[in-house]
Structures are given as structure tokens and as C-alpha cells.
Simulated scan of single mutants.
Amino acid sequence: MNGKNLFNFGPALGYFFRKNNPDRQSNFNLKTMHFINKLSLAMFLVCLVVMFFRYVL
């Protein structure tokens, strides 16, 4: 494993900006699950940034 792949956040950021698939059916449970996943990923990325700045400063 090299350092380039360690900080590859492309798939995580791509999850936020992908388009809806019209072929899949959607319901409240699925929308809620995706909202919670996006919220937890956002909180994780914000915490990584905060920890990085605390470490540097």
C-alpha cells in the first residue's frame, strides 16, 4: 500500500455528487439510509480536517 491511495477521498466525495438512478425504486427507508450515510461521511471528513489542523497547529 502506498501513500497515494491512503488519502484517496474520490469515492467518498463522489457519493455526495452522484445523480439519482431513475431505474431504482425509492422509498422513505432508502432515502433516510442515504441521508444518514452522507451525514456520517461529512462528519467524518470534517473531523479529519479538524484533527489535521490541531496536529499541525
Rank of each mutant, 00 (worst) to 15 (best):
I36M: 14
M1R: 07
K4T: 08
P22G: 09
F52L: 15
F35M: 12
I36T: 09
T32H: 08
F28N: 01
N20H: 15
V49S: 10
G14L: 02
A42K: 05
N20A: 15
S40N: 12
F52S: 10
M33D: 03
F17G: 03
F44C: 05
L13I: 10
L57D: 10
R54M: 12
A12Q: 13
G3A: 12
M33S: 08
Y15S: 06
Y55A: 13
S26C: 10
N2S: 15
L57C: 08
N5V: 06
P11D: 08
K4A: 12
M51E: 08
M51D: 09
L30Y: 06
N21V: 04
T32L: 15
R18F: 02
V49Q: 07
V50I: 14
M51Q: 10
L41N: 02
L45V: 01
L30M: 11
V46S: 09
P22S: 12
G3N: 14
V50P: 01
L41P: 01
V46P: 00
F7V: 07
N8F: 07
R54C: 08
F53D: 03
G10D: 07
H34V: 04
N37R: 14
N37F: 04
F17P: 00
G14Y: 00
F53E: 10
L45K: 01
T32K: 14
F16Y: 07
S26D: 08
L6E: 05
N37V: 12
V50Q: 00
G10L: 04
M33L: 14
N29K: 10
S40R: 11
K19A: 13
L13F: 10
Q25Y: 03
R24M: 11
F44L: 13
C47K: 07
F52I: 05
V49G: 06
K4I: 12
N2G: 15
Y55T: 07
I36R: 12
L13W: 00
M33F: 10
N20Q: 15
D23Q: 11
R18T: 07
V46Y: 08
F28K: 11
M33W: 03
R54D: 06
V46K: 09
K4E: 14
D23H: 06
M1A: 13
L39I: 04
R54G: 02
V46A: 14
Q25L: 09
V46C: 09
N20T: 15
D23S: 11
L57N: 13
M43D: 02
P22E: 10
F7S: 06
N5P: 04
F17L: 02
A12M: 04
C47F: 04
L30D: 09
V50M: 03
V46H: 05
H34E: 15
M33I: 04
S40Y: 03
F35N: 08
M51P: 00
G10W: 00
K4H: 10
L41F: 02
F16C: 00
R18P: 01
R24P: 00
F17Q: 02
S26F: 12
F16L: 06
L45F: 02
N20K: 15
M33R: 11
K19N: 08
N20E: 15
I36D: 07
